[in-house]
Amino acid sequence: MSSIKIRTKRLDGNTQIRTLISHPMEHGRNKDKVTNKLIPAHYIQVLTVTHNGKTIATCNMGAGISKDPYFAFLLKGGNPGDAIVINWVDNLGNKDSEKHTIT
């Protein structure tokens, strides 16, 4: 199952894109309560949003984003049937991608 959830909503002629990603977003300074060892850093570094194949947003982020990150963007216009694709890459090289069609 994909780690990305995408919702879109029409707002006054614009389209709001909301996304929720399930990811631990560990910054590497937390300790494991059982073993008392540092939990290694594991966080998303780059998130890209494309609209009909064109990149509309590139977000570079650090571990200062909360666990299970949520983002919202507002697309000018946008028509039903347009494809929104969201990709992320984390510091361990994991990646995921999800496609959504505006309704």
Binding site: N14, R18, H27, R29, H51, K54, T55, I56, A57, T58, C59, N60, M61, G62, A63, G64, I65, S66, P69, Y70, F71, A72, F73, L74, L75, K76
Partner: peptide
């Protein structure tokens, strides 16, 4: 940017003209 965080920069989003100047996120 959060002044007192160990890593001050939280997110930098490059937004193309297709997007309104709007962004929402959740920070630590």
């Amino acid at each position: 940017v959060v002044e007192q965080n160990p890593v001050p920069l939280v997110i930098q989003a490059q937004l193309m003209p297709e997007l309104e100047p709007f962004m929402s996120a959740r920070l630590k």
